[in-house]
Design a protein around this nucleic acid. Structure first.
Lengths: 334, 334
DNA sequence: TTGAAAGCGCTAACAA
DNA sequence: TTGTTAGCGCTTTCAA
């Protein structure tokens, strides 16, 4: 692989001049600039990233922290982020957090070894040491979608409590009174969705039935399927279910199918997130939409201004959710 | 961020010694080794990746080339690869190829700027210049799943022609005679699946009907949905469809639903790939399984031996596919 | 068993 | 407008 020195030699100039050309610095003779550019083209020379990174003390890449078990929502968010970040001329680097005990710390080590320009966190982090360390890095850290309240970084998400609230209201408005919830355990966004759901129920004069809430202990459709089996084994009278994520909802529909319950004829299922896949399912998934593209655009915009030296004026970016009606929910009795 | 110098200073030793400790070199006083290790622990020091990368002339990371529009199969393959690669102590770096004209070349530039240890290609590359350049890099390049015949690198995939053949045989064995195929256009793996399918049909004495093959012009479920609409608009008499990928199959099921045709009661749909999601759908997707985990394990194993200086004894790693029967296909008339 | 010194490829002062 | 020089953080001879 050619180095800047060789290009310089070929051009009969010094490496500095080549560097100036490559970085669009002023004070270069136009003719020489052309010559060097041609040489670069010809040889296929590409500057060594590590070397630039070292001298500039930055890597022109932003880290993205995700759990090893990637959800569709996280994938969509990542895709959108990647595209936006690329448009800024930056690279993206995925850091997977494995579920093992030291997973988060391990991730931190890798994080620290790069001179990242910024970090997007797309999951809930539980280790406070990591949080502190992230803060200590002195680079922008932005938290997307699955937010933990009280996070010491700007967060970008829908109002999860309101989402849950609206879910219950929507199902109630359809005439359903016996509602279940399938959620994925302890994650904050998840708990908020459930508590909003509960608030709406209680506000509507319905006593909260703890047995109508099922912890799926995970985010995969398979978890949702098992959750539906347990839930309906315990509460066969339910006519509608809110699943805290679309993937869970997919599994719930499946579980119901295995139980011989038709969706939406006998049971309505409401998802959350609005992953692209939802519209291609049968029945199409009715869901509360999380505007992933908007979230990504805002995150990258904020990163950019932070990179430009500004500190963000907001710490909580809350995006509007909205109902997307497809076919998995139906008015009771219709 | 602490540097190796500061650790050395704290330990009262030279940077060389610290480096030796960090890299498990011999000839270090055990007591001093302990002291340095403690210091590293304490300060949270992590070596600068760029600096190591520069001096060692390698980045300890393997590049993974994927299309910007990531399919579920590609995602599953990537996940498996990432896990295996991490176990080797290497990092993984995604390179997205955008569909734009210069997408592949742009990707190449980024590739060359890193000193990658190896490259996994998870998509079909069309630009010969890229292929040549990849070869010229002098590092292992391994091609996974979506293979182009004649690729100058080791490839890892199922026998796509045989997959298509078995698809037709399976559907024929179920009593279906009026078969359709939905495929995703020009990609080689895709064409092979179709031609195997065709061969089986013709072998069974059925004339090939070009109108029963529908190009979905893409890999998303939405493409599959539209393809189903066109296909059944033209050939309403079809009783079974083979979709060249599971995602296409999902869309086909959806399209059929929109047309009022029940799957599998009226039309059978056979997918290909066996993505995890398939089992959670309603109906569960019957599909030809591609052993993604095995493929990933083999790819990483081969990379490892190439890194160890061996050159691979095989160039075509062909994995066994197998039928996974779920609920989307049914015997005709039953 | 340890340290000094050189150098990886690049950029940025500074001098010319 | 260009070249010289120093140095980013690390590893690795080579010498002690």
């Amino acid at each position: 692989m050619a180095s800047i020195k060789e290009i310089a030699q070929l051009a009969g100039m010094s490496p500095s001049t080549v560097s100036r050309v490559l970085n669009n610095r002023t004070y270069v003779n136009p003719a020489i600039r052309e010559r060097i550019l041609a040489l670069v083209q010809e040889t296929g020379y590409v500057p060594n990233h590590a070397a630039r990174s070292m001298v500039l003390n930055r890597s022109f890449t932003v880290g993205v922290i995700v759990p090893e078990a990637f959800s569709l929502t996280q994938l969509e968010l990542f895709s959108a982020l990647e595209r936006e970040v690329a448009a800024l001329g930056l690279l993206t680097h995925l850091f997977f957090v494995r579920p093992e005990a030291e997973g988060e710390l391990r991730c931190l080590r890798r994080l620290k070894s790069e001179k990242l320009d910024g970090i997007f966190v797309l999951m809930e982090l539980t280790d406070d040491a990591l949080l502190d360390a992230l803060q200590g890095l002195g680079i922008p850290v932005l938290w997307g979608a699955l937010t933990r309240p009280g996070a010491p970084f700007p967060t970008f998400s829908v109002d999860d409590e309101a989402v849950g609230f609206d879910a219950a209201r929507y199902l109630g408005g359809l005439g359903h009174e016996r509602l279940g919830v399938v959620h994925a355990g302890a994650a904050a966004f998840n708990r908020l969705r459930v508590s909003g759901f509960r608030r709406a129920r209680e506000g509507a004069g319905q006593a909260w039935d703890e047995g109508a809430a099922q912890d799926a202990a995970g985010f995969t459709p398979e978890c949702g399927r098992r959750a539906a089996l347990s839930l309906f084994g315990r509460r066969p009278e339910l006519t509608a279910v809110f699943a805290a994520t679309d993937e869970l909802a997919i599994g719930v529909v499946r579980g119901l199918f295995e139980l011989g319950r038709k969706v939406p004829d006998q049971v309505s299922v409401l998802g959350c997130g609005d992953v692209a896949l939802g519209r291609s399912l049968t029945p199409g998934l009715t869901t509360l939409r999380q505007p992933v593209a908007d979230i990504a655009a805002r995150m990258v915009g904020t990163l950019q201004s932070q990179l430009g030296g500004e500190s963000p004026d907001e710490l909580r970016f809350v995006f509007a959710h909205r109902l997307v009606e497809r076919e998995s929910c139906r008015r009771l009795g219709s």
